[in-house]
Structure formats: C-alpha cells, structure tokens
Design a protein around this nucleic acid. Sequence first.
DNA 1: ACTCATGATATTTTT
DNA 2: TATCATGAGT
Length: 679
Amino acid sequence: MFNLDDLNTQQRSAVSHINGPLLLLAGAGSGKTRVITCRIAHLLQQGIPARQILAVTFTNKAAREMRERVHEMVGKAPQGMVIATFHALCLQILKSHIDRLGFKKNFSIYPAADQQRLVRELLRNLNSDSTQADADQVLWRISAAKNRMITADDYQAEPRDPLSALTAEVYPRYQKALKAYNAVDFDDLLVFSVQLLQRHADLLDHYRERFRYQMVDEYQDTNPVQYQLLKLLAGGHGNLCVVGDDDQSIYAFRGADVGNILDFEKDFPGAKVIKLEQNYRSTGHILAAANAVIGHNDKRREKVLWTDRGEGAKVRYLLAEDSEDEARLIVEQIHAQQYRSKLRYGDFAILYRTNTQSRAFEEQLRYDNIPYVLIGGQQFYDRKEVRDVIAYLRTIQNPADEVSLLRILNYPKRGIGEGSIDKIIRYSAEHEISLWKVLQKVAQLDEGVNERTAAAIADFVAFIKRFQQRFKQPLFLLDSLRELLEELKLGDEIYRQEKDPQVARRRVDNQNEILNSLAIYIERTAQPNLRGFLERISLADDEGPTKNDKESLLKVDAVTLMSLHSSKGLEFPIVFLAGMEEGFLPHKKSIYETFDIAEERRLCYVGITRAQQQLFLLGARQRRKYGKLEQREPSRFLSEIPEHIVHTEDSSEPGPESPELAAQSASNFFSNMSRMFGD
DNA sequence: ACTCATGATATTTTT
DNA sequence: TATCATGAGT
C-alpha cells in the first residue's frame, strides 16, 4: 500500500481528489507517474470498484508501466480496471460494436506500410504522374482530417491547393477500399469509436457508467478526436482527471492541440487545478536553464520548477568545428565523465532534433568501440521480411485483407505470374467479387488462366485454408506458426536473394523472432488466438525481445541515441543535446514555414529536462549539408539561458590543458588497455 | 527476376 | 552528399 506521507502537499491533494474534474499540471520530473498510481490506489482504498476505473495513456509503454506500478502498490493485479492506450481502448469498443458501422467483427487494422501502398495504388489509378511524396502527403492529409473528425464525405478541397484537391479525390476511395477489405486504419479506431458513442445513446450510457473514474496521461498531446472521446465519456459524472504539461506539448504536427490543456477549466467547469513544480530529477543549474528557456514562451501555464538538491554542475556548451568534431567531443566527454565518476554507458544519452543527425554519432561511437542503442528508425514490424510473415498471418485471419493477400500471392514464387494476377484483379473489380472469392473460383472453374497457374492458385488456396483450420486451435498456435515458416521456406528464399550472408542471417533471425513474440503473447494472455496476436502487433504492443525501451536499455548498458521527441518521459544522468543551432533547433521549417517557434522551444525544454546531473549542449560552426559546407549560427535558445549557469568551451581554442583532457587521455589509456586484454 | 542507374529528396511520428 | 524508390536493361 502507499503512504500519503511520502508525498508533497500538492501531490497529496491530487491523490486524495476523488470526484469532479481535476487538472494536474505536472512539470517535468515532478513525480507524475507516482501521483497517478497513488491516486488509483487511493480510489481503490476508498472502495471504488476497480472496474469503474479507466486510465488512458498514449504509449503502450506508459500503460504497461502504470499497470505494473499499480500492481506493486496494491499487491495484486488490477482486475477489471482498464489501463490502456487511446487506440487499445477504442479497439475494445469497436470489437464489440463495429457491426453497427457495417463492418464485420473480424476486421483488421491496417498498418502504415499498407496504407501507403493503398494510397499509391489509388493515386496511380487516378492520375499518371504522382510521386511517392504525393502519396505520403495525401495520406498525411487524410490522417490530419481524421484527427479533426472530418470524414471522407465532409472533406472539402482548399482552393488553389492541388494536394488537397488530390486528397479530396483519394480520401473517399481510400475509405471505400478499407471497408471492402473489412479493415480500419489507426485513426479510424478513434474516429469510429467517437461516431458510435455519438450515434448510439445506449452505448454512451453504457461506457459512462462503466468508467465512472477516468484518468488521462499526457493530456497536452490529445488531438480533437481524443478530446471528443473524453468529453463524451466524462459527460454526466465529470470524474475526469487529466495529467499533463503544456510546456511539453511537442506533437502539434500530428494534430495535438495544446488548447485542450489550456482550456480545461472552460471545458469542464468547476475543475480543480493543481500544479506540481517540485522536481525530483535534475540539479539546480539544469532546472534554471530549463525555466529560463521555457519562460520565453507566452500562452502557457506559468510553472517554475525547483529542487532541493542543490545547484549541481553548470550546463556546458561545447562549440564544435563540424558534425564529426561534435561527435568526437561527445565521446571525449563520455570518457572523461566515466573516468571521473563511476558511470555506465547506459547513463549517457545523445539527443538530437532530426534522425539523420544520428549518423555522425553512430560512426564515432563505433570507431571508439562504445556500445550504443539507436531508438527510432525502422521498427521491427516494418522490416520487409517480418511484414511478409505477418501478411501470411493476416491473410489467414482475414482473407478479405487484399493488400496482404497480394503481397504473398506469389511470394515465395509459386508460379502465379503478374499477368494472371492482373487478370484476377480485373475480374474481381468488374464483378465486384472479393479477390479471395475469385481465387477460389479460379481454382474450381479454371477461369481465364492457364492450367498450371490454376493449379498453383488451387494449391495456394488450399494452403491458406489448411492454416486457417490449424490456427483456429489455440493450443497449437506456436506449432502452427512454426509449421507455416517451415513450409514456406522463406529462409531459403532470403538466402537466395541476399548476397551478403550476414545480412541474410539477420533477416532470417528477424523472422524467427516473430515466433518469440508469439510465445510471449501466448504466455501472457488468458485466451490467446491469432486475432489477438495480430492486434497486439498492429498496436505495436509487443513485448518481444526487440523491444526498444528503457528496460532493455538498462540490460545492454549502452549509450542511447534518440530524437528529442522520443526522449520525452525518460531521464539520464548525463545528456548531450546536439545540434544547438539555428535551423536544427529551432528547425528551419519552423522558422520559415510553420512559424511555430514555441513548439521548438518546448522541444528544447524537453531535452534539457531529461538531464539529471550534467547537461551538455553542443553545436557546430559549420556543417555539410547536401554536399555543401554551410556556416551555422548558434541556436537562439542558447542566448535565453543566463550566462552564469553555462560554461562555454570552443573546440578550436583548446586553451590550457584542462583537467577533462587529462582525465580523458588517461581514460582512453585505460579503456584501450582493457580492450587489449579483453575485459 | 535481379542488378544497376537514375532522379527525387532530405523534421519530429507515442498508435 | 547519401539514401531511397522506381524503371530500364540484361
């Protein structure tokens, strides 16, 4: 059980608040998660049934963490309580009621890669000269529209905006195609749930009653659909507790609306507001820098973080010559810091604005034999070889999923040529019969394709049907997948295609990794089935060994490289915030196009507040950009930090031998020694 | 069907 | 400059 005495005054008053709307403005590192879990424990202690409690987060990781911490605190698994991401919650709602929107209940969730394929396809059918970029843009616009609850029917093209005209063409077709595939995309999960609640009073009543106590984490990141959903669910009782920090709102580009958190009291009259300003993470100088920077934003909830931990080290600004030099300086500091205090590699993080910046750091770290983990970039389930296997599973689960079906129809090659596939697609379109039905028909009626192809198709259909039966038996899920992989011999195919045997090996390993995640899924699920597994994968809620989160970082002890965006919520003893230059932070797009410098400043603030003991800010004098050498200016945010808390060092003027340099060369010596002796 | 060359493009991305 | 996707060519 928890102890109220361990909390500060503000935390305690938040925890003991029970009825009515509550806005908890939780500054960075103010013990937010602790307050949320304590509040849940407190609600339970007050006799509120677990099943009336709903806690919504944005990431699976956050949901998992919350669940675990509640578990620890109350000593048993939180039975009946729903702790889920927005998307997982909506998936639950749709699973029970999507038939009211004309979908079948075995609908599938369309992954991003398939969305792209579909839009590309639709564009090709519409106009001859459309690029990859157009497809991405259109998809982006569709998503943005959905975030604002604009349906395909309502979507209006902006005048003099060719892309929105294109979107207006594609959006309805895209929606129609999804429906034909009995599939929904990520955004639909939310939009459809809201529509269900709006149109069906019985459902609304049901869920309001079911979730009498609601909490939302990272409220500053909610977009209009999510806001609608909450507004609907909390209507009536108004027991909505939202937690967030407007200063850490960094997802406007994805439709998040800071207005939601700024206007909370207007939306939910009588709301109580509590600020958490005591920071338990960073030392004083770091917080002073953070406060100074974020203080330059207007339209915000004034918060001043403070700590009782003392000033700590000054922030250090290292000015490098170029990007390679910047990476070298970081490695130097890693060695120096390790020499001075006992630090693991896992205590260091390198943060940057854009993912492309990671390269220089990767190269330098590899050169110095320093282990690192790169967060972001290509995700496990986005890899081609993994998607191939998933496509099989999806086809088995829902043969109406035509993108998956087409992906595997002739992979590995089984003698169904492009010409035949074209014929089948055309037949399916003309007669409005699903591809899967046509395939079955071709097998029986020998329609329009030659005998050998027909035989191949018949084999394929039989193959899928056989595995449909196999996968229906929950006890043999793992065996079925193993058999599937064996029979397909995809491994051989990969070895044939990939000339670098090392790469081939990794790709085959990746495929086998799916077996591991299935095994983990089965272990942790009461009634495992193929559908459930695919859902988890779609929601990226996977606990497989490739999991890229803090726990696995701790295990491998490596320096962390990630974008500022993905760093939110994490903390590290030593943080390097690289690329503190005009054009990077603030990013040049924000300077010249979106004019949203405030969001860039928040991003900078997020970066600064990740540091516990020492913060390094780095920038380069010049950088190669698209081949050209470009002069760079220090970020304007640097000048917003008071001079007396920053120590500036210019790499082109080394000055007298500094203690760091001495320490660093000694440290290099030791690390080389230990490398030589294999320790 | 695989390789190679060309040309477009280079912000962040919790699900 | 480096990377990616696409299309021509073998």
